[in-house]
Nucleic acid binder design. Structure first.
Lengths: 224, 224
DNA sequence: GCAGGAAATTTTGTATACTTAATCCTGTAA
DNA sequence: TTACAGGATTAAGTATACAAAATTTCCTGC
């Protein structure tokens, strides 16, 4: 018998939270866009009450900002905030690595190896979306192996803030080589169940990303 | 002329968020308590709409949990989640230390020295509330000196989750001696503008706290 | 022609009314 | 006496209506 899935019962507002989050992450709602209640409610076909609840929830996450009596708009992210987020992510990924390495099961390790191989194939095939999906999968697996729910939740919030800026999409070849080398080193550290090593590699990995994004921001600060 | 303070214009719901957060932090609303809309709305003298918006915001922070069609209740925090939070806090404080030490101004450093001295006096005088206020102040100052808004915001969320469990209130003498020694070491690291050192001390400091809370949880898991 | 101000419109904030879902209690049958 | 069914009650979910604030537009006066 297959695993029994609990029946997911969702309220309108939580459905809206997901939809809005996706719209923001995908760039349909760009930073600074005013969230005019009437317009969006009409589009979604819901009344203002659940919509406003959803907006308040997203505001608590920092994805939208509320101006009293002047409505809500998609949070604008300054360059500093982007860099800051990468710095914090470095600490979180580092911790995840330290925790994950001693805890990881052989099955999970094998799964990550598979993702790593698939990621390389995607890159060779020019499938960038696939590449990023696998990359994300590897990091997800490490956070899952860390077995710290607070850590995973914290990461989720910060991740949504930087994923919607798809800078990452434009990686130069040299940066890619670095990233791959770091990923290879992760596998070594994981295999050795060396938490300190994995933590260090992940911190370095995020620092590389940060430097790369910082450079990108320097040279084309206008393009979104 | 004194500094001009902007007029804070608050909506009802954000006022409610603060009030509810305080009630939860102070233990008036204990984990597991159902937030019955009608009762609380009557108490606060507001209608359900702003109240519900506030509850949704707190849910996004993880302070309350929503059960579809069954209302909201104050999030129950498992022992594992408490420990997890301390672990994450260790990484955040460590990062804050690394960033703060090279950036701190002589004035801020002096301020921290003052807080440290005041903290010791409070402890000697048996003023526990004062002690914790100063302790909090020192850590606040370090996070402020780190100059990373994302880091400060992330810390704020996790902090509210563990501050409402005032385990910390019952510190044994030996633990206190350790804490003081660690704080002294922080001042040394700050004075030397040694980020790596300050980061290491703070990580150790949080690890001490974690161990202490873990021990406390082991031996009196029932008391709230 | 431009500036200032007042009215109108739009939009948000709050309250209330209505609908739907869950729980509780009672009655009946085994 | 217990277990189940069905209605009654209560509370949550959603929609709408009303009030207040902000923005826009248009008119008047200089």
């Amino acid at each position: 018998m297959t695993e029994i899935e609990p029946i997911v019962r969702r309220s309108l507002h939580s459905e809206l939270v997901d939809r809005l989050r996706t719209l923001i992450a995908e760039g349909t709602l760009t930073p600074g866009t005013k969230l005019v209640e009437k317009d969006l409610c009409d589009s979604f076909g819901v009344s203002r009450t659940p919509f406003r609840e959803a907006v308040r929830a997203l505001a608590a996450e920092g994805l939208v900002v509320l101006m009293p009596s002047r409505g809500a708009s998609v949070a604008t992210v300054t360059h500093d905030q982007i860099i800051d987020s990468f710095v914090v992510m470095g600490a979180l990924e580092g911790l995840a690595g330290e925790l994950a390495a001693p805890r990881i099961t052989p099955e999970k390790l094998e799964e990550i190896r598979g993702l790593h191989a698939a990621m390389l194939n995607c890159r060779r095939a020019g499938d960038l979306d696939g590449y990023y999906a696998r990359n994300r999968g590897i990091h997800d697996a490490i956070f899952a192996a860390a077995g710290n729910e607070t850590l995973a939740a914290t990461r989720r919030i910060i991740h949504t803030r930087i994923v919607n800026l798809r800078f990452v999409a434009r990686i130069g070849d040299e940066a890619w080589a670095t990233a791959i080398a770091e990923h290879e080193e992760m596998l070594v550290a994981l295999n050795a169940r060396d938490g300190a090593h994995l933590g260090a590699v992940l911190r370095r990995h995020l620092e590389s990303k940060r430097a790369q994004v910082a450079h990108w921001l320097q040279h084309r600060p206008a393009g979104a």
